[in-house]
């Protein structure tokens, strides 16, 4: 039979072709590999920022005039224990001074803030200590002294008050600090403004 002969003739040849293709057309190689270790150290950081100056100009009246302004403090840290932010005067003095004239700090404390008395200055941080919801929500200029907003005296350096603390990392965590000055006409005016310096301190927990 022609077909069978054809097949018989082709079979060995096909087998040889198959073997040649399979073993001749390919080469067996041993793969060589190498590995690289990637190392990355993420440094721990902590940062703090604020505006730098809070201006609280007052036009005193007989009964007393109050100006309120705010500062926003922003803290960032990737320390897993979080941070503590404190506030204190930069010196042992807690008053605003213009030469020999002074505006003393409010008699209230962070635990027990008080309605601002005339001729004093103070601060308020909503939700912290005894402030609760007594802090202002907007700044005002030369208004009559608020009977609802409460303020505390800024503590001297070395005895800072904690105004924010977290238990984990912080990304742009903001704390708004309200400052107020109240003065009547018995507070000496001067050509040199009353000034004081406050320090915010942020440290990891």
């Amino acid at each position: 039979m022609k077909i069978n002969k054809y097949i018989r003739l082709k079979s060995p040849f096909a087998a040889m072709l198959f073997l040649a293709l399979f073993f001749g057309g390919t080469s067996i190689v041993t793969a060589a590999t190498a590995s690289t270790t990637i190392n990355s150290t993420i440094s721990s950081v902590i940062s703090v920022s604020s505006t730098g100056t809070v201006t609280l100009n007052v036009l005193p009246t007989g009964s007393g005039s109050q100006t309120i302004g705010s500062d926003t403090v922003t803290v960032n840290t990737n320390d897993v224990a979080g941070y503590t932010l404190t506030l204190a005067s930069s010196t042992a003095n807690t008053y605003l001074a213009s030469g020999s004239n002074q505006i003393p700090a409010s008699s209230g404390s962070q635990a027990t803030p008080v309605v601002q008395a005339v001729n004093t200055w103070g601060y308020c941080v909503s939700g912290v200590g005894g402030f609760g919801a007594t802090c202002p929500s907007v700044g005002v200029s030369n208004q009559s002294i608020s009977g609802t907003n409460k303020f505390a005296g800024v503590p001297a350096t070395g005895s800072p008050n904690t105004i924010a603390t977290t238990s984990t990392t912080a990304v742009n965590a903001t704390t708004t600090v309200w400052y107020a000055v109240a003065a009547n006409t018995s507070q000496a005016g001067s050509t040199t403004p009353y000034t004081g310096t406050i320090t915010y301190t942020a440290t990891a927990n």
Partner: peptide, 15 residues
């Protein structure tokens, strides 16, 4: 910060 002309000067410090 240089001492402010008016009001409260803020210093920041991180530890």
């Amino acid at each position: 910060n240089p001492k402010a002309l008016i009001g409260v000067t803020i210093n920041e410090r991180v530890g």
